[in-house]
Nucleic acid binder design. Structure first.
Ligand SMILES: [Zn+2]
Ligand SMILES: [Zn+2]
Ligand SMILES: [Zn+2]
Ligand SMILES: [Zn+2]
Lengths: 159, 159
DNA sequence: TTTTACTTGATACTCAGTAACAGGTATTCT
DNA sequence: AGAATACCTGTTACTGAGTATCAAGTAAAA
């Protein structure tokens, strides 16, 4: 898996020790697209139950500080994490009913945000832009109430 | 206070009972711009300690469901609430150091988001767009580290 | 007036983490 | 190699931002 190798590479360059726990956590993280912390904990512990919840959280913040992982607060469901290393900037579109998350790019917006910030004397450092709606198939299910807890589309274990 | 009157008006029209607790909570809420739930609890209880935390939370969700209040998850600090009733749509710009929150409008973006969603077969229902950076005065303070917990600019009590 | 519905406060619990701390591993120094 | 040091880990306890439950109180409807 290419992405795993390059991520571990970056960690080595930053002098971050690559313990077996961290390796496992990384291996599982790059296998998901958007995952909650608690999901990652379960996923990791299903493979090695001796790895503690704490270590998963600690590794997650480590990776965030190293700029490899980003945390996204979506309005529905828990915060999701994403291994962004090697991916181009993108924003997110979420279905409020089934929880599907689509990543999209809108290059025209990016410079406009910088300008907006400048109008108020700010230097822009980052931004989040999230769209919420109903996906094609969920639009058809008129009767069903909107679920607040989205299903996650998590791949099967390929430890 | 005009805004308070029109907000209570809307609640009456919706058949929501306007108890004394709710009146106090509303009165305090419209007095703040962006406030955390816990702040509102303290603020309300400073005036009437018999009002429970629960009631404040319940009223807050009540107001959200009625579409009068919006919750904003900013990346730094706790979630903030805002009485949006009577205000035009706007997005937010936050200083990562001092926590200042600026509301701004960018009418050109709004239709573009609809289009972006449509490209993926989605109907857009809402969105959040938040910019993070450093305000003018915080840009000058190079030495000081970036604080994660922003100071809140809360007005004095005018019960 | 009696029944019913809504609202409240107290208490307990959950979820997503953080903090403190002691024991275990690596790394570095001598 | 052995000692000193730094880093990493698991356990336990705690926090913040709520949610769930439930009994008692209050208001509205019949
Ligand atoms: Zn963007
Ligand atoms: Zn859907
Ligand atoms: Zn907008
Ligand atoms: Zn500032």
């Amino acid at each position: 898996m290419n992405r795993l190798i390059s991520v571990t590479q970056v960690l080595k360059e930053k002098g971050i020790r690559l313990t077996s726990e961290r390796q496992l956590i990384l291996r599982r993280a790059v296998n998901h697209l958007h995952f909650s912390a608690e999901e990652l904990v379960k996923d990791v512990r299903r493979i090695d139950a001796s790895v503690s919840r704490m270590t998963v959280f600690r590794t997650l913040t480590l990776l965030q500080d190293a700029g490899l992982v980003e945390k996204h607060d979506f309005r529905y469901g828990p915060p999701y994490y994403e291994v962004t290393y090697g991916k181009a900037h993108h924003d997110h579109l979420m279905c409020m009913r089934c929880g599907e998350i689509i990543e999209f790019q809108e290059p025209r917006w990016e410079p406009m945000q910088e300008q907006a910030a400048k109008r108020y004397g700010y230097t822009l450092l980052s931004h989040t832009h999230k769209l919420y709606g109903l996906c094609g198939s969920c639009q058809k299910q008129h009767g069903t109430p909107i679920r607040k807890e989205p299903e996650l589309h998590v791949e099967e274990i390929v430890a």
